[in-house]
Design a protein around this nucleic acid. Sequence first.
DNA 1: AACCCGTGGCG
DNA 2: TCGCCAAGGGT
Length: 334
Amino acid sequence: MSVDASIALLSWYAVDKRQLPWRAEPGETPDPYRIWLSEIMLQQTTVAAVRPYFDKFTSRWPSVEALAAAEDSEIMAAWAGLGYYARARNLVACARRVAGEHGGRFPDNEAELRKLPGIGRYTAAAIAAIAFGRRAVVVDANVERVVSRLFAVDAPLPGARERLYALTETITPETQSGDFAQAMMDLGSAICTPRAPDCGRCPLAPLCAARAAGTQAIYPVKAAKAPKPRRDGVAYWLEHDGHVRLVRRPAKGLLGGMLALPTDDAPAEAAWREAGSVDHVFTHFALTMRLLCAESDRRDPDGIWWPIARIGEAGLPTLFARLAARGSEWRNAA
DNA sequence: AACCCGTGGCG
DNA sequence: TCGCCAAGGGT
């Protein structure tokens, strides 16, 4: 099974693999910095969403030393809109550790990579295999889906995670495990998809237990999810002389470390006026946030005041970018 | 171990 | 329309 699976898969990958900006062409040497950056961005995020951010980051910061030397605020702003902002905070911390403690070179093995911020079991294995040619067991959501079908694993996720890891280990080849991992992920993305997998085009179909039983659509089995609660909030658009008041959110928690409109408590005594609301869905709750707007007769010198004409450059996360659009409309209507 | 943490596309 | 889903990690 092991050898058959990897040969069939690698043959398919050699022909049908995707061209991606971070992926080295055959004969090229992969750049660990670009592999690392792409892997962090791709955590729980689609290739289509990552592409423009990867291009922007590698243009502005072509090396890990360049990234390490950047200001936190620049990097957070550049990450705005991509989500899961702890990744950006860990990205800076990791770049500075690599630049400061490793001479600008990423560790070339899983155990050392695993010690760096933002690099967990999956990412350490992926970088070790793809950037450094190490044999590593790379298990992401694509691989879990493919393997759950190959072996018809009936135990539900996330409990079945260790079982799926062990099964992946049995089919991971000793060499070319980086290509094998990327092939599994491309297969999961293009053919062995969550709904309606295209088994007719799958190089692993002859080896697939679920396919043999005709039950491929039921895998991976997943535990029921808790219902998503709804919450309500208030944000404030306070402007003065063409500028709007912003705040830097606390480093931890929701949208941590990002610039935002003030929330919860009014930033000033003013004649606040309703300007509608924005609905936004986060991973674990749905939020309806009202927007209150006012003009201030003075400018608190301790606050962050951003020119409204350039609000698009502030690097607001999506929720606040949408609220800011409402605030600008309110302003133009007044 | 269970919970926290974004966003946009898709059927 | 809305729930599902995505190259997960931290605590």
